[in-house]
């Protein structure tokens, strides 16, 4: 199987955000692979172990992103592609989605995987915009993934399923992904035809650490760097649709008071304050 994983390099979740001149300072910041993307990568590695094939990691970002891609290669990915964020407004999902869609299309994946969202911007928009552009079905917030051969009607158990809209799908449904996904209304199991997009929810798996031999091998694995201008996209496709006006720290929260007394007195005081002072009840 051709497996492609979209990853993003983000600040470590334990980092504080220091604002300098209206942007988040990167001084002394530890960067990681977005944790949700790490679940996606781990799942791709497991699917390759079960079904064979190659895992390609793709990212859009500044030069420092090479480090995240090397980590992904050390975990076991076969190849990496870095789309330079130069000339792309990286905080606008439209332009990034357009450019990444082109990269993914050239890789013709059977399965595209990504994190449910990135812990920095938190929009969870780009991967789904790519799916829309490429005609890929989606199964979001996956907790369990299985790839199977398609049944007679496309789906398993003779149910009918239309083929993926990917231009490289090649007609008919050959394989399906059975995905258990986390929704607000419960755990839902769906079946989608490949090629498709699956986004990873926390709990999907436990990502492996890069091994020492893995780190050594990663140095020799292919890491291709490309720029958006090489993709042959129209100017309008790369034109951002939104822009940042300002960036601020969160409203400062002053520490309140600690309630004294016996546990009984504390509980009584708290209930009273929540009712009379905070007017919540």
């Amino acid at each position: 199987m051709q497996l492609v994983v979209l990853i993003k390099q983000t600040f470590d979740t334990e980092e504080k955000i220091e604002l300098v001149n209206g942007t988040a300072s990167e001084q002394n910041v530890k960067f990681i692979i977005n944790p949700y993307d790490e679940y996606a990568l781990e799942e791709a590695l497991r699917l390759r172990e079960a079904h064979g094939g190659t895992v390609t990691v793709v990212s859009c970002g500044p030069d420092r992103t090479v480090e995240a891609l090397r980590t992904a290669l050390a975990m076991g990915a076969d190849e990496a592609v870095l789309l330079s964020a130069d000339g792309l407004q990286g905080d606008d999902g439209y332009a990034v989605g357009a450019a990444l869609a082109k990269v993914v299309e050239q890789l013709k994946p059977d399965l595209l995987l990504a994190g449910l969202f990135a812990v920095d911007r938190g929009a969870g928009s780009v991967a789904l915009q790519i799916a829309e552009r490429l005609g890929l079905p989606q199964a979001a917030a996956a907790l369990k993934v299985e790839v199977k051969d398609a049944g007679a009607g496309g789906g398993a158990d003779g149910k009918s399923l239309s083929p993926s809209g990917a231009s490289w799908a090649g007609g008919g449904v050959k394989q399906v992904a059975v995905v258990e996904r986390d929704t607000e209304w419960g755990a839902q199991t769906v079946e989608v035809p490949l090629p498709a997009l699956i986004t990873a929810q926390q709990g999907l798996n436990e990502p492996r650490y890069p091994s020492l031999p893995g780190i050594m091998k990663a140095k020799k694995k292919p890491l291709k760097q490309i720029s958006a201008s090489e993709l042959g996209l129209a100017a309008d496709d790369l034109a951002p649709r939104t822009e940042r006006v300002a960036l601020q720290g969160p409203p400062v929260r002053a520490a309140g008071r600690k309630l004294a007394g016996t546990p009984q007195e504390q509980a009584a005081q708290l209930a009273d304050l929540l009712q009379r002072e905070a007017k919540l009840f």
Binding site: Y94, S125, Q129, E132, A140, R241
Partner: peptide, 23 residues
């Protein structure tokens, strides 16, 4: 910005060639 809204909005935005401001 619910489970369903988060799945639908990016598709809608891409389909109309528009921007998506989330959450």
């Amino acid at each position: 910005h619910t489970a369903a809204g988060r799945e639908l909005a990016p598709r809608v935005a891409a389909a109309v060639s528009g921007g998506h401001i989330a959450d």
